Amino acid sequence: MANFYSVLLTVITIVAGLIWLYDAKVSKPKRQQRIADEEKRLQQTLSDEARERVAPQGSIAEFAQSVFPILFVILILRSFLYEPFRIPSASMMPTLLEGDFILVEKFSYSLRDPIWRTELVEIDRPERGEIAVFKYPPEPSLDFIKRVVGLPGDRIIYRNKTLYIQPACDEAATQCPELQVIERNLERADAIYFSGATPLQQYREQLGEVAHDTLVDPTVGNRDRYYFQQPGTARDEWIVPEGNYFVMGDNRDNSEDSRYWGFVPEENLVGRAVFIWMSFEMDRKASSMLPQWIPTGIRWERLGGVE
């Protein structure tokens, strides 16, 4: 659906631009000639109103001329600079909440054309701990947002709700990094996040240079039987292939991520989440007379940068 809007915006912009170009190069000279002929016949300079009566610009061409610059600027901003996204689920709680509207920096990793997503310019690659938006590998028409946990060549283990990472071994290194336990510290004893009626445990975790919070549901058991199985590894272990990334949601027991469907190829990357520009409360009761999609309030305190 997200790619549909990109294609639609691109097509509309191109059509408006072609109409404007045809009018400027073909129709406008003809209008100017008619005006010149009429002024010669009358032996006087016509006013703007009279010129419009003698050689009016078509309504479609006039509309295309007025909207093309706006559409072009929007297309450039949305395709190559920043694109707004809405958080539709609770998989990234507590970092991102349902109802948050974020800006994604499209040029963080590369510049791609908005239709075929061919890489035009390579800029950078994701760092461990960043929050990335990407095309969902099983269904690329959908945009997903998760935290980057594993980089190419990393060995990832998620066992008993504990994350282990063995960074990729550099070919020039004389000794490879050891398997590291990603420590987590209990952040809050009083639960403020829930899954239904179940209070969730909130932990502080350090991934690379990024410190962030995660949530764990103490009532949920081991789900490794549902994990994506990579040949040659244990059920709860993965080795990230070159050109791919391993991503997870911060709401660890309520996130459909790499543990269940595999890796994110570089070509699926859209950009890096950088800013929450609006956050709506969406807790309207079922008995309300208003539709459920109408916000109940604004969480002003959430506006700002994303970690």
Rank of each mutant, 00 (worst) to 15 (best):
D217E: 06
D250M: 06
I19T: 08
A286R: 14
R302K: 13
N160E: 12
K106M: 13
V54Y: 10
P114L: 10
V26F: 10
G99R: 05
A16N: 03
S91A: 15
T174V: 10
V274A: 01
D154I: 05
L9D: 03
V7K: 05
T13N: 05
D250Q: 04
P84C: 04
L71E: 01
S287F: 13
S279K: 02
L96Y: 09
L151C: 06
L77E: 02
P138G: 09
R128C: 02
R147Q: 09
Q292Y: 09
R128P: 01
S110D: 06
R235A: 14
Q206D: 03
R252A: 07
E242K: 13
F63W: 14
A55G: 07
P177V: 06
L142Q: 13
D190V: 15
F85N: 01
Q32G: 10
A189S: 14
S108Y: 05
A173N: 02
D113T: 15
P56V: 04
W277Y: 15
E237H: 03
Y109V: 07
R147G: 01
I76E: 03
L97S: 10
L215V: 12
F85T: 01
L179I: 01
R112K: 15
M93W: 06
S141T: 14
V148G: 00
K40F: 06
E127L: 11
R117C: 05
E49C: 03
E38V: 13
A211W: 12
V247N: 01
A2R: 07
P94Q: 07
E119A: 13
K285T: 09
P231V: 08
S27Y: 03
Y164E: 02
I165M: 00
W238G: 01
E187K: 15
F246C: 03
V73G: 06
P84K: 09
E105H: 12
E187G: 08
W293Y: 15
H212T: 02
L103C: 10
K161V: 08
R299W: 05
P137G: 12
Q292P: 03
L215K: 02
I131Y: 01
V149Q: 00
I60M: 12
S91R: 11
V121A: 08
G221M: 11
A132H: 02
